[in-house]
Design a protein around this nucleic acid. Structure first.
Length: 196
DNA sequence: ATCAAGATTACCT
DNA sequence: GGTAATCTTGATA
């Protein structure tokens, strides 16, 4: 079997390009013996120069330490008292930049994702495409929490990224969702996925 | 020490 | 279209 896992070469790009390059790639997680996966179809870019970013101005903190790691690490943070969001760290070590994974199309493990999402609000998600179509939903469906913060996607045997040949078609961009600052930047990217 | 805001979601009218 | 839920973080004192 060919090695479809994304390597360091893939991550050698700036944050804006990475946000687009990640579209169509597959997020894979082995959680409790179950394989969960999905195709990334929506992302947002965040850099140190961006007032909406947790690391604006190069500010470091315990929460954002992972953002300053080398590209390919997983940055997970807790938000609004009840949700987690996952990001792929980008650029070089020492620069706090990352790409937020805003949505994936489930491929494997939908039964587990359904259970994980139900545990959150007690309701069953019937349609697969609604399981992870939002940043909080992605983390909840996959079971990601801050314990997974700092995972190296290049070497971890539990969480990683693959290229399975899906193509991001007709990539579009817009202002980012849910932010008050940096709204003038069209740093949200989303695409239709060909090959499903 | 205190407090407002937050890279969200689900449910309401 | 509006807002409650829920709590960590960062700012201000």
């Amino acid at each position: 079997m060919t090695d479809r896992r994304l390597n360091a070469d893939f991550f050698a790009a700036d944050t804006l390009e990475m946000a687009q390059r990640l579209l169509g790639k597959v997020l894979v997680a082995r959680m409790d013996g179950h394989v969960l996966s999905g195709v990334i179809h929506e992302t947002e870019a965040y850099t140190e120069e961006d007032p909406a970013c947790h690391t604006f101005g190069g500010r470091r903190s315990a929460r954002t330490a992972t953002m300053f790691q080398a590209a390919g690490h997983l940055y997970v943070y807790f938000i609004y008292g009840m949700y987690h969001c996952i990001n792929v760290v980008t650029e070089r070590e020492g620069r706090g930049c990352a790409v937020l994974i805003r949505g994936v199309i489930p491929l494997e493990g939908m039964d587990v994702m359904r259970k994980n999402r139900m545990a959150g609000n007690g309701k069953t998600v019937v349609k697969d495409h609604l399981l992870a179509n939002g940043p909080g939903k992605v983390a909840q469906a996959f079971g990601f929490t801050t314990v997974h913060d700092g995972t190296d996607l290049l070497t971890s045997s539990y969480i990683y990224l693959e290229d399975r040949g899906y193509a991001a078609e007709d990539i579009r961009r817009s202002a980012r969702i849910g932010i008050r600052k940096g709204t003038e930047l069209d740093w949200r990217f989303y695409a239709r996925i060909r090959g499903l």
